[in-house]
Computed example of a mutant assay.
Amino acid sequence: MPKDFIDMDDHELMVRISWYYYKEGLTQSQIAKKFNTNRMKVMKILEKALNKNVVEIKIKDPYVNLLSIEKELISKYGLEDAVVVPVHSNDKKDISRQLGLAASQYIQRIAKNGDVLGIGWGQAVSNTIRNLSLDHIDNFYIVSLSGGMLPLISDASFFSKYSSYFKILPAPLLVSNEKVAEDIYNEPEVRSIKNLWDLANHLIVGIGSMSSDATILKRGYLKDLHFASLKQKGAVGDILGQYFDEDGNIIDFETNERIISFDITKLKEKQNVIAVAGGENKTSAIRASIRAGYVKTLIVDENTAKALLSE
């Protein structure tokens, strides 16, 4: 039987109670009974033991490291928030699926009644939509931030379930010439969607790389010749089909005049732009987009996050 409170100094008391609680696994009520006191006093002593560094708690789990990486990303790049996804394989499709799942969970956590959610172009965003559920909110809108979205989301059960909430821009991502783009922007339905762009308080975008497996290439919107020319001009990646250099400056290119998309320079004015992007081939593009102020929250895989922190 341990000594009573009155027979021990504060330090000895903290050590003994901490030992019983953390090493022996006794409950606070059991400890209180041993020391002939109450649970509230035991709880306060345990709290004091932590504050005085008598007890040091270490969490041994791989996810703790991810939390540390998230904190470093936020600090280094001035982000509002970051989510780092553990890597289970190097398969790009698997990474994209994992990112989409994490992004959908993040959006479900922050979404509120009356929100206007803008969704961008790309495979990672498509995977986000596939996993998203917004049953807990109502009176919301989901608006596409570019043309060419329907093929990327129409096979998702989310789209059929919430189709009445969707406002899809009725156009491809790129059209044949500037005049066609101008005519599309003048359509009443498109003007209505552009008005919703101004109201969107959460924008979900993907970040494209300059690799041969870029979604914009696979979907046939850009030819290899265009891609090579963009690389020569210093492009490191794109958001919504708009290419930028390592400083985030928009590349002057002929497709800019015929793209049907939200102007990414206006992303800087938005409160919460969530980028869902991964794969180490996107490191330069992600870094540039953050530094340019296009991105406020980053959802990224572990390896890419480490690459972003290594420079």
Rank of each mutant, 00 (worst) to 15 (best):
E182D: 14
L169A: 09
L169N: 10
D183F: 08
N177H: 07
A181R: 09
V190S: 09
P170C: 02
E178C: 15
Y185V: 01
V175E: 11
I168E: 01
N177S: 02
E189Y: 08
S192Y: 13
I184G: 03
K167M: 12
N177Y: 07
R191V: 04
Y185F: 12
I168S: 00
K167I: 08
A171I: 00
P172S: 04
E178L: 09
V180L: 10
I168L: 07
N186H: 11
D183E: 15
P170W: 02
E189H: 12
S164D: 15
K179G: 08
F166I: 08
N186D: 09
V180S: 07
L169H: 04
N177E: 11
L169G: 01
S176Q: 00
Y165H: 11
D183Q: 12
R191D: 13
P172N: 04
F166T: 08
P170V: 05
L169M: 06
K179W: 12
K179T: 13
L173P: 02
L174I: 06
N186Y: 09
S176R: 06
S192L: 14
Y185K: 12
A181F: 11
V180R: 07
E189W: 13
A181K: 08
E182C: 02
P170A: 01
V190D: 10
S176E: 13
L173Q: 07
P170H: 01
L174N: 07
F166R: 09
Y185N: 10
A171D: 01
L169R: 02
Y165L: 06
F166S: 12
P188D: 03
F166Y: 12
I168W: 01
L173S: 08
P188W: 00
I168N: 00
V175R: 08
S163I: 09
A171C: 00
E187Q: 14
S176T: 02
P188C: 02
D183R: 14
S176M: 09
E182T: 15
I168Y: 01
E187L: 05
I184P: 01
E187G: 06
V175I: 02
L174A: 09
E182H: 13
V175F: 05
K179Y: 15
V180N: 13
F166Q: 09
E178D: 15
I168T: 00
K167V: 14
K167A: 11
L174V: 05
D183N: 13
E187Y: 13
K179I: 15
L169C: 13
I168D: 01
S163Q: 05
S176H: 04
S192H: 10
S176A: 05
F166M: 14
E189V: 05
V175Q: 10
P188I: 00
E178K: 15
E182N: 14
I184E: 00
S163M: 04
L174Q: 09
A181T: 06
R191T: 11
P172Y: 04
E187A: 10
A171H: 02
I168H: 05
R191C: 11
K167L: 13
V175Y: 04
A171L: 03
E189I: 11
I168F: 04
E189R: 14
E178N: 13
V180I: 10
E187M: 14
E178H: 12
A171M: 01
V175H: 06
P188L: 03
P170K: 04
A181L: 10
K179L: 09
I184H: 00
I168C: 02
P172G: 05
L169E: 06
L169P: 03
K167W: 10
